[in-house]
Computed example of a mutant assay.
Amino acid sequence: MSTASDPSTPAARTRHQHDEAKRYANESYRAAKRLPSSLTDDVASTRTTVGGVPLPGYFHEGVIRARLGGLLET
């Protein structure tokens, strides 16, 4: 019998995926804050995709807040 704490249940997998997404979002935000961003050249993406995933034209903390804000720690 499966329970909510059983890692093989769909609910547990979903919770794990959400936790992983939160970690990714927060690490991305911290990384973006450490990078220079005073010039357009500082934040302009040099690649349009990574692993088939489209990237924004500019990468800075505002983009991360806009796209992943619901996952960021406050």
Score class of each variant (00 low, 15 high):
V63F: 02
A66D: 11
A66C: 10
F59R: 09
E27Q: 09
E73M: 10
R67L: 10
P10F: 05
R47F: 08
E61I: 06
V43L: 05
G57E: 13
L72A: 02
S45A: 15
R30Y: 04
A32D: 02
R23H: 06
T49R: 14
D41T: 15
Y24D: 04
K33H: 06
R67W: 03
E61W: 08
G52E: 01
D41H: 15
S5E: 14
D41E: 14
T48Q: 15
I64S: 00
G57R: 14
P54A: 09
P7C: 05
E61N: 10
R67S: 08
M1G: 13
R30D: 13
R23I: 00
R34H: 15
L55N: 09
A32V: 07
E73A: 09
F59W: 14
A44D: 14
L55C: 09
P36G: 11
V63N: 02
A12V: 02
D19I: 01
T46Y: 04
S5I: 15
T48Y: 13
T3G: 10
L39A: 15
G70H: 11
K33L: 12
T9E: 04
Y24E: 02
T48F: 10
V63L: 02
S28N: 04
H60E: 13
S45F: 04
E73S: 12
T74K: 15
K22L: 00
L71A: 06
E20Q: 11
P56A: 05
Y58V: 13
T74I: 09
T3R: 02
L68E: 02
R15E: 02
T46W: 04
P7R: 01
P36C: 06
G51T: 10
D19G: 11
M1I: 12
T9Q: 02
R67P: 04
K22D: 00
T49M: 06
P54N: 08
